[in-house]
Every structure is written in C-alpha cells, then in structure tokens.
Write a protein that binds this DNA or RNA. Structure first.
Length: 308
DNA sequence: ATGGGATCCTGTGAGC
DNA sequence: TGCTCACAGGATCCCA
C-alpha cells in the first residue's frame, strides 16, 4: 500500500536508473490499465517509446515520467502496484506475474537494451495515464489534489480542515484536501499529534493543526529516508523492500499495549478504514468540554453502535 | 453541497 | 492437507 513516502523513495531510486535512458520499446500487456489525456495516440507512443527520459515528478502518491519531447506518463500504484528496473535477462528475483507494461531501455547512443522497466499490479487499483505534456497532466489530474503532505504548512492545513465537517480520519485520507496520506501514515500521524481520529476536522484549533503538521512532516520524512513501509507488496525502483514498518507505533497493533501509556490500542473501522488509536493518549482535543463536543461524542457513540 | 457506502481486484491467512 | 471465506484498502461512482 504505497503512500507518499513509498512513492518519493521510488522516485529517488528510479531517477538514477531512468534519467538519460532511451525508451527503445514499450509493451502494453493490458490495455485497460492505460488512460489517455488529449488526442488518442498509439499505446506505444503513449508509453513514451522513442523518448529519452529527462525527469520524474511526484505529487502526493502520483508519479510521472517525462521524456525530452515533452510526453509524460503518469504512474499510480494504487494498493499493490510496483515499478522497478530489472536486468533484461529474466532474473528470478523479480516477479513475473501481473506485468501490465514493460519498457526496454538503452543508453541514448546505443541500440541495444540494457535494462527493463516493469509496471506490475496484481490488484489493478493502480494504472498509467498518458499525457502530451506535464502541464496537461497537472491541469487535468493533479490540480484536483490538495497540497502535498510533505510540504504543507500548518496555516494552510488549518484553512483546509476548518470547513470540513467530517471526521479527522476521513478528511486526512481525502486526497483533494491533502495529497499523499494513506491509512498507515494517517494513523501514525494522529497518534504522534495526540489527536483522536473520530474528532471533527473542523473542530481543530490552529495549535492542533500545528502539532498535526509537525507530526505529519516528521513521520513522512523519517519514512522516506527509511525507504518507506513494506507491507507485502511495496518495492522500490531496485526491487528492494522498505524498513519503516518496524517504526509503526499504532498501525497493525490493535489490541496491543500503547507504547506511551500501556493501555490497549483500539481497533475500529472509521471511514471504512481500519483505524488503530489510543483512547488514553488521543482525546478529542479542542471541544471535549464544550456543549458541541458533548453532542459529538454522543453522536459518535450512536453512529458506532450498529457497526461491528 | 456534502458525506457515506458500495465497488473494483487478488493474495494472504485464519479457521474448519 | 486442502478447502472456503473474510479481509486488506486507493480511488471513483452513486445515492441520501
């Protein structure tokens, strides 16, 4: 389940492997994973065949590969997507199933492929988006995303959340409000910021948002340098797994003792997502002593009663 | 306008 | 040992 740190680490590991290489041949094995923006072109042209890779961009969980003539291929890994460079000869280290697109790469001056880029995605929640240029991709897709979670300021975060009458957990997962956070890092950030995931996003004070923004930036930065979290499917551009999973304090630890206070962590579905938090450390901050807060707690209890 | 629920998909692991 | 089935979740669509 790649989130911002996994995508950023992927971008960094792919950059030295891809930039400067020519796409000798592009192969699309499943047409339904490719989406095209602008005028329709052949799949091979859409997949950058003939181009020399100049840059890799990222916004939130989205990646794009740009070639010298301006063409761009957006990459979204969804839940189980992988993008890696393998030696051209079939190496048993690299999985061969569910390869939906592959690219033979060479040095610009050579006509012989020296590497193979692979996009595979067993569950197919991910996909590729071809665009005539980066600005079209940004205008038609990336403009719908909120600010990048790694660089958002606390003031902007507060301004975004103040008008949202949804639970904090749901709001932080919404890519149009904040780009890059997924289930893992939302739970970890809320724990670090001591904020209850059931709180109303609009109830956060500026101080709460400052604490949240600090927690998000610290956790994402640490995770990027650790190579991301590896839960089953994630691999970086070299096919390596990440190590941040060992840093998780709440994610995947439902029912286990809180590392801070020792009380058992709660595990419940919030916004249709498994959520783990500490009811002692993460209180609904900012409004628990107000009439509104009391009403919210009551409605939260009511809304949770029918659920499992 | 806004939020919540269903849906897509397949590998994994628990339970029988 | 082998089978069934619930579960995981990012993004999108639909409905209340």
């Amino acid at each position: 389940m790649p989130e911002l740190p996994e995508i950023e680490h992927l971008r960094r590991t792919l950059c030295p492997l891809l930039v400067g290489r020519r796409v000798l041949r592009a192969m699309l094995h499943r047409t339904d994973i490719l989406d095209q923006l602008g005028a329709r072109v052949s799949p091979r042209f859409a997949l950058l065949e003939g181009g020399v890779i100049t840059a890799l961009h990222r916004r939130g969980k989205n990646l794009s590969i740009e070639v010298r003539d301006g063409r761009v291929l957006g990459v979204h890994l969804g839940m189980t997507g992988q993008c890696f460079v393998a030696p051209t000869n079939s190496d048993p280290f690299y999985p061969t199933s569910h390869r939906h697109a592959e690219w033979d790469l060479s040095q610009p001056s050579q006509r012989r492929a020296t590497q193979r880029l692979v996009f595979r995605d067993p569950r197919r929640f991910g996909g590729l988006i071809a665009s005539p240029n980066q600005s079209t991709l940004e205008a038609m897709r990336w403009s719908k995303l909120g600010p990048d979670a790694l660089s958002v300021g606390s003031g902007e975060l507060h301004a975004r959340l103040i008008g949202v009458r949804r639970r904090l957990k749901a709001a932080l997962l919404d890519q149009s409000l904040l780009a890059g956070m997924g289930n893992i890092y939302v739970d970890e950030s809320l724990f670090a910021a001591k904020l209850d995931p059931r709180s109303l996003a609009s109830a956060l004070t500026k101080a709460d948002c400052k604490r949240l923004q600090t927690a998000i930036r610290k956790i994402l930065t640490t995770a990027v340098s650790a190579g991301g979290s590896t839960l089953r499917d994630y691999r970086d551009g070299n096919g390596q797994r990440g190590s941040f999973a060992t840093h998780h304090l709440v994610y995947g630890r439902g029912g286990l003792p809180c590392v801070v206070c020792g009380s058992n962590l709660i595990r419940e579905a919030i916004a249709q997502r498994t959520t783990v938090w500490c009811a002692q450390c993460q209180v609904p901050i900012g409004f628990e002593n107000t009439k509104r807060g009391a009403m919210h707690v009551l409605s939260t209890m009511r809304s949770q009663r029918p659920s499992r």
